[in-house]
Amino acid sequence: MNILKIFSSNVRKYRKIKGFSQEELAFISGLHRTYISAVEREKRNISLVNINKLAEALEIKPYLLLLEETEHENE
Rank of each mutant, 00 (worst) to 15 (best):
L31F: 00
P62N: 12
L65F: 07
L65R: 12
S21K: 00
K53R: 11
S8C: 12
N52G: 13
L25M: 01
E42D: 14
L66A: 05
T34C: 01
L54Y: 07
M1H: 15
L25R: 10
L31G: 09
E71N: 09
S47K: 12
L66R: 08
E68I: 01
L67T: 08
Y14M: 10
I6S: 07
L25Y: 01
E23A: 06
L25I: 02
Y35D: 00
T34Q: 11
H72P: 06
N50W: 01
F7H: 09
A55P: 01
N10D: 06
M1F: 14
S8I: 02
I28Q: 06
R41D: 09
H32L: 05
N74H: 02
Q22W: 08
N74W: 05
V49M: 14
S9C: 12
A55M: 11
N45G: 07
H32S: 08
K53D: 02
S8N: 13
E71R: 05
E68M: 06
I60W: 10
R12H: 10
V49L: 15
E42Q: 14
E75P: 03
N10G: 10
L58F: 04
S47P: 03
I60N: 13
R44C: 05
S9K: 15
G19P: 00
S8M: 11
S29E: 00
E69Q: 02
L58T: 08
N52V: 02
S37M: 05
V39A: 08
N52S: 13
I60P: 13
N50E: 00
V11P: 07
K61H: 13
S21T: 04
F7T: 01
N10P: 07
V49Y: 15
L58N: 09
F27V: 15
